[in-house]
Simulated assay, not measured.
Amino acid sequence: MVYSVRKSILTRLVRLAWLPLCFLLVACHVDMYDQPKYKPNDVSTFFPDGRAMQPPPANTVPLNSYNPDSPLMTGRIEGQLADQLPPEIRLDAALLAHGQSRYNAFCAPCHGLVGDGQGVIAYRGPMTVPSLHQDRLRTVQIGYFFDVITNGVGRMYSYASRIPPEDRWAIAAYVRALQLSQNADVALLTEAELEQVRAGR
């Protein structure tokens, strides 16, 4: 009697165990494998050129295209802080304008719009933010600013994950221009430039 009951229970359990397997078998369709898709070198009516394989979009950056040890990525030349922009970065008005935009977004809250260390965060908080116009920072290599943005210093944390290398160089170039604007020798300005200064332009 006991054996018969056990056998009956075991039989029911086996039958119940088959139910999930049956559901899985029903759920599996070859559609998931044979779904509509293009293969390399297929013809496509979707694109104007009739090809399924399309060239990469403009400004696509190939994987591992950067040399991690290059001056562009490290701010250093043969281990020493770079004293000039890397060859990939062109110094022009567009670079400085972009650097100003990135500086205002990431740096000005602490360093201030003119780099005097009187940004909103510094004004409201107890910490002291160094002025970018002190003699020590006016004479350091431009690679120093790239290095600080990349790795941080003191209470300033790294911005490497927030600011791409090209933008870090743009900020560094703008900081140099900002330093010059606040410490320029008026005697070196032309009359036209003096008129612009007086007009606040």
Rank of each mutant, 00 (worst) to 15 (best):
C28H: 13
D42M: 13
D34F: 13
P109V: 04
D31N: 12
A160G: 01
L72E: 07
P164H: 04
Y174P: 09
L137G: 09
N67L: 03
T45I: 12
Q100C: 00
V114A: 08
I142Q: 03
I121S: 04
A108E: 08
D49N: 15
E195A: 15
A122N: 05
S4L: 11
D83C: 01
R168T: 02
W18D: 00
H29Q: 15
V148H: 00
P165K: 06
V61K: 07
I77E: 10
P48L: 10
V175I: 15
S4A: 12
D42P: 14
V30S: 13
V114L: 05
V5K: 12
L81H: 08
F46C: 08
E195H: 07
L21R: 03
V2K: 13
Q196H: 08
V114Y: 01
V140S: 00
G154M: 06
A93P: 00
H133K: 08
L194Q: 12
M1I: 09
H111K: 04
R124N: 13
Q196M: 09
Y103M: 02
Y157A: 13
Q100P: 00
S101C: 00
G200Y: 06
Q54V: 13
P109W: 04
P56I: 09
L19I: 15
T11F: 13
N104G: 08
I142T: 11
R201F: 02
G143D: 02
Y144M: 09
L16Q: 08
L81W: 12
R162K: 13
L24K: 04
Q118P: 01
Y66C: 07
A94P: 06
Q100R: 11
C22F: 15
S4Y: 04
K37T: 12
S44R: 08
W18P: 00
Q54S: 10
I171T: 04
Y66N: 14
H111S: 03
L188F: 08
D34C: 10
A160C: 03
V61S: 02
A160F: 07
E191K: 14
S65I: 10
V30D: 11
S131P: 05
L81E: 10
L16E: 03
Q54T: 10
D34M: 13
N64E: 14
R201L: 13
R168S: 09
L188R: 14
C107R: 05
N104T: 15
L96H: 01
S181V: 05
F145I: 01
S131D: 06
P56F: 15
F146T: 00
S131F: 03
Y33I: 15
Y33R: 15
T190N: 03
R136N: 06
R176E: 08
A108K: 05
V175S: 10
G117Y: 05
E78W: 02
Y33M: 15
D92P: 03
C110F: 06
R168G: 10
L194Y: 05
G117R: 06
I89E: 01
D147P: 00
Q179N: 04
Y103N: 01
V30C: 05
P55V: 06
H98W: 02
D49W: 04
A105G: 00
T128D: 07
K7F: 04
L96E: 03
D69F: 03
M53A: 11
F46L: 15
R124T: 10
L21G: 11
